[in-house]
Design a protein around this nucleic acid. Structure first.
Lengths: 166, 166
DNA sequence: AGCGTATCATATGAGTTCCGTACCATCGCA
DNA sequence: TGCGATGGTACGGAACTCATATGATACGCT
């Protein structure tokens, strides 16, 4: 809603420059993805959680109580695998399985907040660094960045869906 | 920590707005990370590669020939695990292990380009979507975005290093 | 030069995880 | 009320991870 594209009635040379910039964005995005995965991996190692476990925990923390099967779909995991993931998360005191009053087959996975401070502490370095980085931008620039990130996420979701279903 | 007065001569409201924007960026970044991981997961499934395998392949593709141990450090994997990863990648024809002429203990892992078109095809949807997104920005905006991504990646690297070593 | 230690990649084996399948309880619908 | 579909999980074989051990080689120190 905020980013305003600028039209390009520009010199003939600008095409190459543009491609370079776009390729740079895509490359940086790959690096970023790798690096964030690695960060998650190390955080997970500190609390004895697999990468996928941490992903699922994040999903539950972020998107409220969810059923195991919905979680499995979102995380791209086999339902039977999700049982194991949830077992580990439950054993570690990260989540609780509650009966769903509306459907007695179903289970609602709820995040317990008790260990969240611990997690937050592990992300504190990254968190502070992001605050620093963001502090250098104007409000308008931050909106531009946020908008870009959301659009890119949406593109990723779309591409993943296409691979999964199409 | 819900109400911190603004310290400078700005409108009383601006601090809150800023925090909202910054928090939004961080949240979007998490979503993005999850989504890109999921995309990689699906891509990997199409070519029978684990997530970690794909990460390693990307590292080799991107950062040239590397030794297994250097790769293990970069990917946050145990050296013995890396042997298994490389076995799979080699069996699939993604990489080759070459002797390092400078150090006869060492091995250089080289990416074979033969199957890269296949991978590229799987990322085609995302690739095109990113082109679309980028097309809406001016050169200056693209530079801003790229700079942000690089800085964020660097922050992630720093935070991960601190967790791994510190 | 020679010896000890560090490093490199990988083999081995125990423990863990993944996932196809099966199973039972429950739901939605005709 | 009956029947197919769905939800969650148990089970078991295959695959994976990782600590340790091993053999080869490099490097530092005297």
């Amino acid at each position: 809603m905020s980013s305003v594209p600028s039209q390009n009635g520009e010199p003939a040379d600008s095409g190459r420059q543009r491609r370079r910039l776009t390729a740079g964005i895509k490359g940086s995005l790959r690096d970023l993805s790798n690096q964030l995965s690695l960060l998650n991996h190390h955080v997970g190692a500190r609390v004895e959680l697999k990468d996928a476990d941490l992903d699922c925990l994040d999903l539950v923390n972020r998107h409220g109580p969810l059923s195991p099967s919905a979680l499995a779909r979102r995380a791209g995991l086999h339902p039977a695998t999700m049982t194991g993931v949830l077992d580990r998360l439950q054993r570690g005191g990260w989540i609780a399985r509650e009966p769903d009053p509306a459907d007695r087959r179903a289970v609602a996975v709820r995040a317990l907040r008790s260990r969240n401070a611990e997690l937050f502490g592990l992300y504190e370095g990254m968190n502070a660094a992001m605050d620093d980085i963001c502090a250098g931008y104007s409000d308008a620039e931050l909106e531009l960045l946020g908008d870009f990130l959301r659009r890119t996420t949406s593109a990723g979701r779309h591409a993943a869906d296409e691979l999964a279903n199409g």
